[in-house]
């Protein structure tokens, strides 16, 4: 459903060259969730951008079954227009993702209810708090019912209740046979949802394995050993 083969990418040239991806390969099938942990600058965002088709890698290939229309993307920003209401934003993105016109409104309302922001539907995005804007961004990423969800630090700005609701939503998403790739610098976030865990540093996967029955604390310990004590706190 999603595969990466020998991905390499660097920014800059000469002495200022920074390797963001160094021979990254993996593949995920329906129902799998990959959590990628790594310190700042490890190349997590670059990897997600390559998977999303935003960056063309220097070498290697990324393939997502169904193409761009199958991808739901949550980046560092909400991708929402501040002077449109939450509902208008969702309807716009639904139209771009070719959601049938007859079902756009009902799907937007259902997604907003799932995220607990149905009462904010007619509010302009600029007037939302950061947490509410993040929920709206999640709603935007889910509006077309993507088969693959790419999440870059998705818990940023969410309060405890919203984070728990989002985890429950991701669990349902996973149960429906979708693929999730989640990148974060915080080992405590999202690890309980992961079927596979990768540690990334200097653009490389220094560890990539099924999560198995390991508890979050064990994974955090493995991360400290693989990446370094200092970065594990991130």
């Amino acid at each position: 459903m999603l595969s990466a083969e020998g991905l390499r990418h660097a920014f800059g040239t000469g002495g200022g060259r920074v390797v963001a991806l160094d021979n990254v390969s993996f593949s995920l099938e329906a129902g799998q969730t990959l959590a990628i942990f790594g310190p700042n600058g490890a190349g997590k965002t670059t990897l997600l951008k390559v998977l999303a088709g935003l960056i063309r890698p220097d070498a290697g290939r990324a393939t997502v079954a169904g193409g761009r229309g199958a991808i739901g993307w949550i980046g560092h920003q909400s991708h929402l227009y501040g002077h449109l209401t939450v509902r208008e934003n969702l309807l716009f993105w639904a139209a771009l993702y070719a959601v049938p016109a007859a079902t756009r409104a009902t799907r937007a309302d259902a997604t907003l209810r799932q995220l607990g922001i149905a009462d904010r539907a007619e509010q302009a995005v600029w007037s939302l708090s950061r947490g509410l804007a993040q929920r709206a961004a999640i709603a935007k990423a889910l509006i077309h019912e993507p088969r693959v969800l790419l999440l870059d630090e998705p818990f940023t700005g969410l309060d405890l209740a919203a984070a728990a609701e989002f985890r429950a939503l991701l669990a349902r998403f996973q149960g429906a046979g979708r693929v999730v790739v989640l990148a974060t610098h915080n080992v405590g976030e999202g690890v309980e949802l992961a079927t596979d865990v990768a540690f990334q540093r200097g653009g490389r996967f220094v560890h990539f394995a099924p999560r198995g029955a390991r508890r979050p604390a064990q994974i955090a310990e493995e991360y400290r050993r693989a990446v370094g004590e200092k970065e594990a706190d991130g």
Binding site: A52, G53, L54, G67, R68, G69, I71, W73, G75, H76, Q77, S78, H79, L80, Y81, G82, W93, L96, Y97, A98, V125, K140
Partner: peptide, 17 residues
């Protein structure tokens, strides 16, 4: 310029548009 707000342009480029 209006696509720079909240990096909406990035969202457009990821979409099938």
């Amino acid at each position: 310029q209006l696509e720079l707000e909240n990096q909406a342009l990035e969202g457009l480029l990821v979409s099938p548009l």
